[in-house]
Design a protein around this nucleic acid. Sequence first.
DNA 1: GAGCCGATATTCT
DNA 2: GAATATCGGCTCC
Length: 175
Amino acid sequence: MIPDLPVEKVARSLLGAHIRTQIDEAATEVMLTEVEAYGAEDPASHSFRGLRVSNRAMFEKAGTLYVYRSYGVHWCANVVTGPAGRGEAVLLRAGVPIVGEAVMRHRRGREDHLCDGPGKLCQALGITGDLDGTSLETGPARLTLADEIPGKVMATSRIGITKATERLWRFVLVQ
DNA sequence: GAGCCGATATTCT
DNA sequence: GAATATCGGCTCC
C-alpha cells in the first residue's frame, strides 16, 4: 500500500491521505495536511542511533504505525516506510477533521484546534502507545491514500529539531 | 498575535 | 544533568 520510494517522496504523497481510527466504539477520521519525513541516515531521526525498545516499530515494514511519547506528555504518530529493518517513517503533524468531529472535541476537551499539531492529532484520533507497532491496513488506525494530492505542496525545514535542518522534509498542503 | 514557561518520560552525555 | 520530532496557559502588547 505504501509506495516503495524514498521516505521524503512518500511523505509528500501522504498529503491528502485519510487516517481513520475505530477506538472505543467511536470512529474518527482526518485528512492529512502536514507531514515530515525522517530517514535512515538522518541525524534528526529516532532511528539514527539504531534499534531500541522504544523505536522498534520504526524498523518494521512499511505500513506499520510507530507511536512515541514526546516531551514526556504527548503521543506522536508515524507511518513507517521502506523495507523492514531500514528505519524510515513519516511523522503525521496535522490534518482536518472528516468524521467524528464531536468525538474529537470531547477527547481534546475544547472546541477548536482539534488536530493542528502532532500531539493534538493523536489525541483527537485517540492514538496512544497501545497502537505502537500495529498495522495501518488491518489495525485500529487505518490509512487510505489519496488518488491525487488535493492542492499545492510546500516544502520547509522540519519543526523542533536541531540537526539536519537543511533538509526540506516538512510538507504542508496549501489551498 | 508573539513570546515565555512549566509539565513530564525517555534517552543521551 | 541536559535535551527533546509538544502543548496550553499566561503575559504583554
